[in-house]
Amino acid sequence: MAGLDAFAIKASGDLNPASARVSDISAAIGETVLTGALQADIAGQKPVVKGDFAIAQIDLDQFRAPPAPSGESAVAADGAPEAAAKSAPATAAARADSAPLDLSGLGALDADIGLTVGVLKGAGVEVRDADLSAVLQDGLLAVTLAELRAFGGSGGFALNAHQRDGRALVSGTARATWWIWRS
């Protein structure tokens, strides 16, 4: 994958029996740089994790494998020819489809993580000003994309998930605004 030869991470931190804090995080892979801070407090009944991160620009195309040279057959990640990999039974997928979704682990910790992305590009699409947060509190996960701009408009979504009486409950809302003007 072109451009991914360079990987670097630096941060400063503090660790004690009750908490861990990592600040001034700067992690770079290729031309993408993630900055932010993370802290975990473990003195209470359950861990509480808080973090705030930002990526100025990420080009997802840099993570794509280069196309196979013409005349060569495609090969799956496990080394099997692509055609054979596609025809193999999807036993893991079949099990996942029939198994109930277990969200009981959401109560193991509380967390509040934020991520802002200035520009996200890939496959000819460009998304701007994405503001994503994930809050996990007492077993309820709330993921919110407060804002994003793409295709000349804006949008966002909210997703909530938790487990009650052994059942996974997931709900969500989305909004989008695009102006179409023709003359």
Rank of each mutant, 00 (worst) to 15 (best):
S73N: 09
A83N: 04
V75L: 05
I29V: 12
Q62N: 09
I42L: 12
I29W: 12
V75S: 01
A56G: 13
P67S: 04
A43G: 05
A56D: 15
I42T: 13
K50R: 14
A80Q: 13
A85C: 01
G30S: 12
E31A: 15
A83W: 02
L60V: 02
G44D: 15
Q45Y: 04
K50V: 15
P81T: 06
D41A: 06
Q39C: 07
A76Q: 06
D61V: 03
G79Y: 04
G79K: 06
A77Q: 10
G30Q: 12
E82Y: 12
E82Q: 09
K86A: 10
F63L: 14
L34E: 14
P89K: 01
L38F: 14
R64V: 08
A54F: 04
E31R: 13
G36S: 12
T35G: 11
F63A: 09
Q57M: 08
A74Y: 00
A65M: 06
K86I: 01
D41P: 05
D61E: 06
A65I: 03
A40C: 10
K46M: 07
A54E: 11
G36R: 11
A80F: 00
A68T: 07
I58D: 04
I55D: 07
F63Q: 07
V48L: 12
P67M: 09
A76V: 04
I55G: 08
I55S: 05
A68N: 02
K50C: 08
V75D: 06
A54R: 14
L60K: 01
A88T: 12
A74I: 00
G36V: 08
F53Y: 13
A88V: 11
S70E: 14
R64Q: 13
V33C: 03
A84W: 03
